[in-house]
């Protein structure tokens, strides 16, 4: 159990692991996540389940080594075991046939989009995909999403690949073209999800976003992952992680994601090991 069966660097510092855990592989649904821990004393890191292989008994995880704990995770290799792997956690995505739906992934937030896109596709939706990244080499899962979507657009901030600009520019253009999009799912950095939600709100297009607040246990016990949705406090781990993008208080989410910046910076400056940045959910 928990053995890394395959490891692949799909973009700089971005890894795809296949991990042996037949029961999670069998039970997981689109939109759910796991919590992993690599070593004694390590953090509990939530990561979205990107897919599973029932024959091999594996689950697929994709993560970017951006913080201390994800860098520890990236140190592992094929044959190593995760110390802990708990899941599948959170609510599965609500799937229905909306007709034409648009799935949007920003950065390594594109990874959580893949299983949801697959489930939406299986339910009969005609999918338009939009992938965004800072630069060409950070674009991930273009092939995989291309296989599911009838149309796939790519945008890079620096214009090195696809449309120059943000995913919202592409979405705006699609809507201006008159694409009859009935549903939008967006996963990525919080500012990106907020921008998408602002755009679709004007046109009253139903929009779901997958939130990545800080988390500890992931089972509802601690309440550290609380987010404000429609003026109510929700726990992302048990009520989410997906919520109505038009109702989410993104300002609060982003502030809370930065809760431990001072501690992280101090530890980075004085601690025995380097720890730059924060590990957010995926």
């Amino acid at each position: 159990m928990n053995e890394i069966i395959a490891k692949e660097e799909i973009a700089p510092d971005t890894y795809r692991y296949q991990i042996y855990h037949p029961r999670i592989a069998q039970k997981r649904k689109a939109g759910q996540f796991v919590i992993v821990r690599t070593h004694d004393g390590g953090e509990r890191v939530p990561l979205t389940i990107v897919g599973s292989d029932l024959t091999a008994g594996t689950v697929t995880l994709i993560f970017q080594a951006v913080g201390h704990s994800t860098r520890e995770l990236a140190q592992l290799g094929v044959g190593d075991r995760l110390l802990d792997l708990a899941g599948p956690l959170g609510q599965a995505t609500h799937i229905e046939n909306y007709g034409r739906a648009c799935v949007i992934g920003g950065g390594y937030g594109t990874a959580p989009v893949l299983p949801i896109a697959a489930a939406l596709g299986d339910a009969g939706n005609d999918l338009i995909g939009i992938i965004g990244a800072r630069t060409k080499e950070l674009v991930i899962l273009e092939q995989e999403l291309g296989d599911i979507c009838s149309r796939l657009e790519v945008a890079t901030d620096d214009g090195s690949y696809g449309h120059p600009g943000f995913v919202t520019d592409v979405l705006q253009a699609l809507l201006d073209e008159g694409e009859p999009i009935a549903f939008v799912l967006a996963v990525g950095p919080s500012p990106m999800m907020r921008a998408v939600a602002n755009l679709t709100k004007q046109r009253a297009i139903r929009t779901m976003v997958s939130l990545n607040p800080l988390m500890v246990d992931g089972t509802g016990m601690c309440g550290g992952c609380r987010v404000e949705v429609g003026g109510e406090t929700k726990f992302a781990c048990v009520d989410g992680p997906e919520f109505d993008g038009h109702q989410v208080n993104f300002d609060l989410l982003m502030k809370r994601q930065g809760t431990y910046k001072p501690e992280e910076q101090e530890a980075a400056a004085h601690g025995p090991h380097c720890r730059i940045g924060l590990d957010a959910a995926r």
Partner: peptide, 23 residues
């Protein structure tokens, strides 16, 4: 629950040394 879980289960009192979870 969160405060004590961070401090006890995750041993956040030794953050930066033996534990990676902050408080």
């Amino acid at each position: 629950n969160e405060f004590l879980t961070r401090a006890n289960l995750m041993r956040a009192y030794s953050f930066g040394e033996a534990a990676d979870t902050p408080i």
